[in-house]
Write a protein that binds this DNA or RNA. Structure first.
Length: 352
DNA sequence: TAGACGTGGCC
DNA sequence: TGGCCAAGTCT
């Protein structure tokens, strides 16, 4: 175990990528990075992280911001509930802990949006505490290293992985050790085409010895996303540079808290676009035919959309219904799907 | 426990 | 191209 730690740390010291969040020990900045990195690639996160920290450099600035401002800085990153939970978590830190991220593992873990992984990442990286982390990378590395061939996601396998991670982390530089495991999984012990020749612990690796690296970890089968047919309406007011678009905001689980074009599930008949407008409380003259068809694939759903244009009369705005100029759109949270729909309805005006 | 929850890149 | 994957959390 000591030899393994030593090899991992030695390798990490010479192979670690220079990433923005590795240039700080600020627990808040580490927290932001860890939330952004959930299920999201490093290269994707970097520009978001830079912008977010520039706009919200401290817990106090984030806590004081309104949700639209927070979501606008998350726009395009996906899994938007992360942003709302981070916002809530940081507000709690400001209110209950004077703006300092709690060093107590228990208190940290109790914050909204902070699960077992994120709590351990902040604890080890920012506070140098010997707290384990198990993410997708660590799962792959440990499954191969120890030859764990039970399916990932079961209670027993999860327990085994956290146990192994917890055995590994005590000692010098627990934060570096955890990051070494993750870095190894991200750059060497990869899901596709692992580079065992470059691995610092190949000699200790059960899967390598047995020639089953490609077979581990054993993933659970996942279902292909089911398709859903929808109708979306891009309703605009005004002309030329003064033109603006009507968006609604919902608390639905999907895209909750974001602004988007009125949309309803299609039932086959013709009047669906009108239903979308009615539901949104917008009166508008609807184009007879869809302007475009858009397919948007999520992890669990395949969305097939018909996009209609409509011309709206100036109408009442509310908390959940507003008319946005291009500039105003940049101040709120908007999904990539919404950007695509706007671009599809008006290719010259919006870019996806 | 299994499913919801975004997006983009890769082969 | 369609499926898989990427520093998870919540319900």
């Amino acid at each position: 175990m000591a030899g393994l730690r030593h090899e991992l740390l030695r390798w990490y010291d010479q192979a670690a990528r220079d990433l923005p969040w590795r240039r700080t020990r600020d627990p808040y900045a580490i927290w932001v990075s860890e939330v952004m990195l959930q299920q999201t690639r490093v290269e994707t996160v970097i520009p978001y992280y830079e912008r977010f920290l520039k706009r919200f450099p401290t817990p106090a600035t984030l806590a004081a911001a309104d949700e639209d401002a927070v979501l606008s800085h998350w726009s395009g990153l996906g899994y938007y509930r992360r942003a709302r939970l981070l916002h809530a978590g940081v507000r709690e830190v400001v209110e209950r802990y004077g703006g300092r991220v709690p060093e107590s593992a228990e208190d940290r873990r109790a914050l909204p949006g902070v699960g077992r992984y994120t709590a351990g990442a902040i604890g080890s990286i920012a506070f140098d505490k010997p707290e384990p982390v198990v993410d997708g990378n660590v799962t792959r590395v440990l499954a191969r290293l120890f030859g764990i061939d039970t399916p990932v996601g079961t209670a027993a396998t999860t327990q085994r992985l956290w146990d192994e991670a917890a055995r590994l982390v005590p000692g010098e530089r627990p934060g570096a050790l955890n990051q070494a495991l993750m870095e190894l999984g991200a750059t060497v012990c990869t899901a596709q085409s692992p580079r065992c020749g470059a691995c610092p612990v190949a000699a200790d690796c059960v899967a390598h010895r047995r020639g089953v690296v490609d077979a581990l970890p054993v993933a659970r089968a996942r279902k292909a996303p089911g398709a859903i047919a929808l109708v979306a309406v891009v309703a605009t007011s005004g002309k030329g540079r003064h033109r603006s678009v009507w968006l609604v905001r919902s608390e639905a689980r999907l895209f909750g808290g974001l602004w988007g074009v009125p949309m309803v599930q299609r039932n086959g008949c013709g009047g669906d676009a009108r239903a979308a407008l009615r539901e949104a409380g917008i009166s508008a003259r609807l184009a007879p035919e869809p302007a475009a068809r858009v397919e948007h694939v999520l992890t669990h759903r395949r969305l097939r959309l018909e996009v209609f244009r409509a011309t709206a009369a100036r109408a009442e705005e509310s908390d959940t219904r507003r008319c946005f100029t291009d500039a105003a759109l940049e101040e709120v949270g908007v999904s990539t799907l919404t950007r695509r729909l706007l671009a599809a309805a008006s290719p010259s005006r919006y870019t996806a």
